[in-house]
Structures are given as structure tokens and as C-alpha cells.
């Protein structure tokens, strides 16, 4: 009797161990699949021409597979989104954490959660119908679908993550720090700028990294507003294709080397994301050590 009870405990332990390992197995599986399906095309095209080639003409008679336009567009779009979204998100978070009366804090907190819950295709739709025509008529360009529209949509989409992370970081600063600063005669504003924000810097840095990750990984909304032509991002109104949309836009009809090259683009994107993950982990670990 006792023996069987022990045996069954062992079986259950093993079962939970397997369930625990599912996440690890998934990460390994995804990595292996991406490397195995992404490497062949990179090797065939050559890492140099693939990564630094300026022309993507996958369906031409003489196909060319250079993904520099995608890399640069993704980077420009992400940088622009952070440039716009970070100040607004950061200041909104400061308002939420320090200034807002309780009722407004609750309402605005809800608003930010709603913003986070809106599906990316809905952002894309509003971008297509409102933003793209607005950019066209405001700046007098022939087509409003391009880098600027993508930047604005992404800036709005990363806003909730930046606000939430920053609020958490600001609220985590010990009350004593602020009390000490106030006791020394500093005003409330001076305390926030000189004490609270510097003390919360690693959390704020994490918010930025998270925002970068979301912006660089977004595909559907970008697909709907960025114009989707494989150009180098040499102007804000250029029709561009990001790493994500490069994969999405040709996947359904591609085959052979073209399809393999799409997997290679996904591999490059994956490496970017893994690098960001490591950076995020490093920032948050550093915070715990303090």
C-alpha cells in the first residue's frame, strides 16, 4: 500500500516536471526550427549580400535578396516610435503615479488598459482610414502610407506598455527617498525629477526595451499603413517594409529560395528579439542587485 502510494507520487512528480519543461521545449523547438529553416538561404545567398544588399527583388527574373531595406526600416520605425511614444508615455506615467487624484487615476488607468487591449488590426484599420489620408493632405505627398504613418501607429501601440512599466517603476521607489528630499526643502517637482525618476531609472529603461520589442515585432498594423514597398527608409514618407511585414507579405505565395529567404528574415528578427530579451533581463537583474 505504502509502496504504491510512493510510486504514484513519483509518477505525478514526473508529470509535473514534464509540464514544467514545456516552455523550455517550446523555446528550443522554435530556435531550432528557425535556425534550420533560415540558415540555408543565408548560406546560399551569402551572409554579406543578404544582410547588406540594398535590393530586394524576390520575384524578378534575376532575383535579388538584400534585406538591408527591411532592417533599416524596422530600426527607423522603432526609433521613431520610441521618440514619439516614450515622452508621452513617460509623462503620462508620472501623472498617474504622482499627480492624479484617485478617481482620475482609476479612469486613466482603465483607459491605458483599453488601449493595450485593442487588437493590432484595429489600429491598422484606423491608421488606414484616418492617419494615412491625414498624412497625405497635411504634407501634400501622393500617398500617406509610409514610414511616418507606421511610426505614429507604433508610437500609440507601445504607449500602454511604457506607461504601465514606468508607473510600476515609479511606485516602487521607497517612500523614504522622497520624504528625505522633501524634508531637505525640495519642492515636490524637484523631488520627482532629481530623486524619484533617477531612482526608478532601471525600471524606466526596462520600459523602453519592452517598447522597442513590441514595436520591432509588430506586423499587421504596420502592414496596413507602411505602404509595403521594399525601399530604403530615406524619407519619412517613403513606402517601406519592415522585417515583420517582409515575412508576412510574401509568405502565402512563396516557394523555393524565396520562401527560405523569408525564413532567414524571421531568423534575423528572432535574433534581434533575443538580444532585446537578454538586455531586458540584464537591466532587471541589475536592479535586483542594488
Amino acid at each position: 500500500m505504502k509502496h504504491t502510494a510512493k510510486r504514484s507520487e513519483q509518477v505525478i512528480h514526473a508529470l509535473f516536471f514534464l509540464l514544467g519543461m514545456v516552455a523550455v521545449a517550446c523555446v528550443i523547438l522554435i530556435t531550432v526550427y528557425l535556425v534550420f529553416s533560415g540558415l540555408p538561404a543565408i548560406l546560399q545567398i551569402g551572409p554579406g549580400p543578404f544582410l547588406t544588399g540594398k535590393v530586394w527583388a524576390s520575384t524578378a527574373a534575376q532575383p535579388q535578396y538584400g534585406i538591408l531595406p527591411f532592417i533599416l526600416s524596422s530600426l527607423a520605425g522603432t526609433a521613431g516610435a520610441i521618440l514619439l511614444g516614450l515622452p508621452v508615455g513617460f509623462l503620462t506615467a508620472l501623472y498617474l503615479a504622482k499627480l492624479a487624484p484617485p478617481r482620475i487615476r482609476a479612469l486613466l488607468g482603465q483607459a491605458v488598459s483599453v488601449l493595450a487591449g485593442i487588437p493590432s488590426v484595429v489600429y491598422g484599420l484606423v491608421g488606414m482610414m484616418v492617419l494615412v489620408p491625414a498624412v497625405r493632405s497635411l504634407f501634400g505627398v501622393p500617398d500617406g502610407a509610409g514610414l511616418l504613418s507606421a511610426i505614429i501607429v507604433l508610437a500609440i501601440m507601445i504607449l500602454p506598455s511604457i506607461v504601465k512599466m514606468t508607473v510600476t517603476a515609479l511606485n516602487a521607489v521607497p517612500q523614504e527617498y522622497e520624504a528625505a528630499s522633501l524634508a531637505l526643502g525640495a519642492t515636490a517637482e524637484e523631488t520627482w525629477v532629481r530623486v524619484t525618476i533617477p531612482a526608478a531609472r532601471s525600471g524606466i529603461a526596462a520600459a523602453v526595451v519592452l517598447g522597442v520589442g513590441r514595436a520591432i515585432g509588430e506586423s499587421m498594423a504596420v502592414m496596413m499603413v507602411a505602404g509595403n514597398a521594399p525601399n530604403l527608409p530615406d524619407s519619412l514618407f517613403q513606402s517601406v517594409r519592415f522585417l515583420t511585414t517582409a515575412v508576412a507579405s510574401e509568405m502565402s505565395y512563396s516557394s523555393g529560395l524565396q520562401q527560405q529567404a523569408l525564413f532567414s528574415i524571421a531568423l534575423v528578427l528572432f535574433l534581434f528579439i533575443m538580444l532585446l530579451n537578454a538586455l531586458l533581463n540584464f537591466i532587471l537583474k541589475g536592479e535586483n542587485k542594488l
Partner: peptide, 25 residues
Amino acid sequence: GAIEYAAEALAGIPSIIYGLVGMLL
């Protein structure tokens, strides 16, 4: 730690990559 790191990594992977791997798998 490895399991938690894996879960974090999964949370950060863009959905288009899930789409590709899901297609293959």
C-alpha cells in the same frame, strides 16, 4: 531559472514568428 527565462522569452517573441513556426510545426 531556466524555465522562467524560457517563459519570458516566449512572451517576447513576435506573433509573426509564432505564425511561421506554427506553420512549419
